[in-house]
Amino acid sequence: MEKFEKVFFNLLTKEMNFFMRDYYSKFNNKNKWVGLLDIDNAYVAVLITNDLEEEIAYSEAKEYLSSTLDKPFIINLIVLASDEYINSENSYYNKLVFSLKERKLIYCSEGSKSFIPIIDYINKSDEKKTKRFKEYKFTYSIMIINICIFLLEVVKSRNIIEIDIYTLIEMGAKFNQLINYGQFYRLITAAFLHGSLIHIFFNMSALNIIGKEVETVYGGRKMIIIYLLSAIGGNIFSYIFNSRGISVGASGAIFGLLGAMLVFGIKERHNIGKRYVKNIIQTIGLNVIIGVAIPNIDNFAHLGGLTIGALISTVLFRE
């Protein structure tokens, strides 16, 4: 309800020129908001309540407005119904009843019809957000997993800026000595660990862009296959060619997704043009230069992820 109230009143002030006042509710033991619009000879008042409190909300708002306003006022209640709503159409105030559960309008009196466009706008915005998540649910799911694991790292290391090396090793970093002792799971767990806040920020920002493209072209399930196998491939390359280093991060998997888009660009070059391939190659080249210029970046993991991602996507594309 609080989220709905915030969005509704925000739209009310921006789109319909209402201004806000707050008053103390004895029933709720806290301050509540009421929107007001001056229409020359009177005020239009709008407040939001749930279906169990609409009578008391009306009474308290009426008492407050009667003692503070210098003109007559018309109260409109936006009633948020959580369960089955029993409506009395003979009520002595204007009201609009909206079902939070079913996301639909249940009832609207004549005097409150001007608020229907705001309800429709909120509904459509929520539908877009839901649809957007469903459209890229695999990309968002991987991002959420990475972020949750990073938060565990923060708790264990007690530092949000830099994660100490002992925490990374304990949680599954690529560490050749331990892999040699049979801890092969590190070839995948390392891809879900990050060494700092900046590290995860840049990797998740890249994944948010590239992951969506791969998910659109290849589909969610194939995108997951490419991502995970690229992550493993990147860590295997790191294990072979960077035996002394400790490695963590999703960048090997992300390079695998870049490889997948490179394969797509090459195979579809007659339909989408050569510029797309050129842009992907430039992006890869730029990241390689950054990797060489900045210390402590595992370029072998990037190379391995890119190679495996390109190979796997060659098989999976249009399969």
Rank of each mutant, 00 (worst) to 15 (best):
I86P: 00
F264E: 10
T49R: 06
Y276H: 14
M261V: 09
L178H: 04
H270R: 12
N296V: 00
I236R: 11
L306S: 14
N10P: 02
S82L: 08
T130K: 13
K124P: 01
M16L: 15
G211V: 01
E89N: 14
R21Y: 11
N146K: 03
N90D: 11
R132L: 11
N159S: 15
K124W: 03
Y140T: 03
I280Q: 09
G245I: 07
R158G: 03
Q183F: 14
V263C: 13
G259F: 08
Y23L: 08
L152F: 05
R244P: 02
K14H: 11
V214G: 08
T139F: 04
G273V: 13
F8N: 05
D126G: 09
A81V: 02
F115D: 00
G234F: 13
D70R: 06
A81S: 10
K267N: 09
D164A: 14
N299I: 15
K104C: 05
S114H: 07
N94Y: 08
I165L: 15
N76K: 11
Y140W: 10
L37N: 14
Y166P: 00
E53W: 03
F175R: 10
I232Y: 05
Y218S: 05
L12M: 11
S82D: 07
T130A: 09
I161P: 06
I106S: 10
P117R: 00
P72I: 06
S67W: 00
V277L: 13
S157F: 03
D38S: 10
K128Q: 09
Y24C: 05
Y227S: 04
M20C: 08
F175N: 12
F27Q: 03
R21M: 14
A173I: 02
E54V: 14
A301T: 10
Q183P: 03
N287S: 10
L316W: 00
G195T: 07
N28K: 12
